[in-house]
Nucleic acid binder design. Structure first.
Lengths: 138, 138
DNA sequence: AATAAATACTATCAAATAGATAGGATTAAT
DNA sequence: ATTAATCCTATCTATTTGATAGTATTTATT
């Protein structure tokens, strides 16, 4: 399971990509209302995406958020790793958050291979999906 | 990520499948030592597998655990669902633990489809793997 | 300069989950 | 009886999840 936080992050990004305009940033309050995401929680999420250089923010009146990078260059894996961390099902099989298991000799681990396969299939799907590809284009 | 508990469960089952004999059940202490799993934690796990009719147990001297069903009929998904619950990344996409998301209309959810694809690919791998297929066969 | 409206930041909190450990009760073979 | 195994209940700590409250700061507009 991904966390609610991560689900909110993805939905918020899709919303921003869909609604931003040259002259106007998208406000937290609008995203919260439209996507039914708790406002204060969303603030934290958007700031985190900003700190990771996914979003740009502007303070004060007429402030809000806009995409810092093109939505077609932001994959779901990138967002998921920022918000939730590893995507793999075992630490010893994670590409970006590798940790060895205390209890096992990796060379002789019986279960590692299976979860490498799961990881590869999962990444095949998620790497191919961008914020843009989730956007409603007419 | 799957939990340590789930990882331990799978490793313990593979160990039991590998080491059980007609006349002798496999003891918690042996599994704990060989697989470096905390003994008391392992007790809880094995009992849970027993309650779910994966294992059979025998109390008292010469007691222990053995497979209740054939290892080739026990898929990884079954174990993972018993120990960790849902395998899918979103509740609204889970086959065995479906829950709707509070905040979204499922028909118009932009992210559901991606996670259905991840689910299908993941299950393709995990349904095909059984305890037997992880066992060392010579 | 004052006001309004937005994000930024800090602190806090409650509930659930993860990951165990301790100790005694029960069962069964010898 | 003794020994050795599972079974059961209770408990514990740390972390994560999911959030809320309140204040500070920034900016556009009047």
């Amino acid at each position: 399971m991904i966390s609610n936080k991560c689900k909110y992050a993805i939905k918020a990004l899709v919303y921003i990509a869909n609604n931003e305009q040259d002259d106007k940033a998208v406000m937290t309050a609008d995203i919260a209302r439209e996507q039914k995401i708790p406002r204060k929680f969303l603030e934290i999420i958007l700031r985190e995406l900003r700190n990771n250089r996914i979003l740009d923010s502007k303070r004060g009146k007429d402030g809000g958020f806009r995409m810092l990078r093109a939505p077609e260059n932001i994959s779901l894996t990138e967002i998921m790793r920022i918000i939730d961390g590893p995507i793999a099902m075992l630490p010893c099989v994670s590409l970006n958050y590798y940790r060895s298991c205390d209890e096992c000799e990796e060379d002789s681990c019986q279960i590692k291979t299976v979860f490498e396969q799961v990881r590869d299939k999962t990444l095949e799907v998620l790497n191919g999906k961008t914020i843009k590809s989730l956007t409603s284009q007419f």
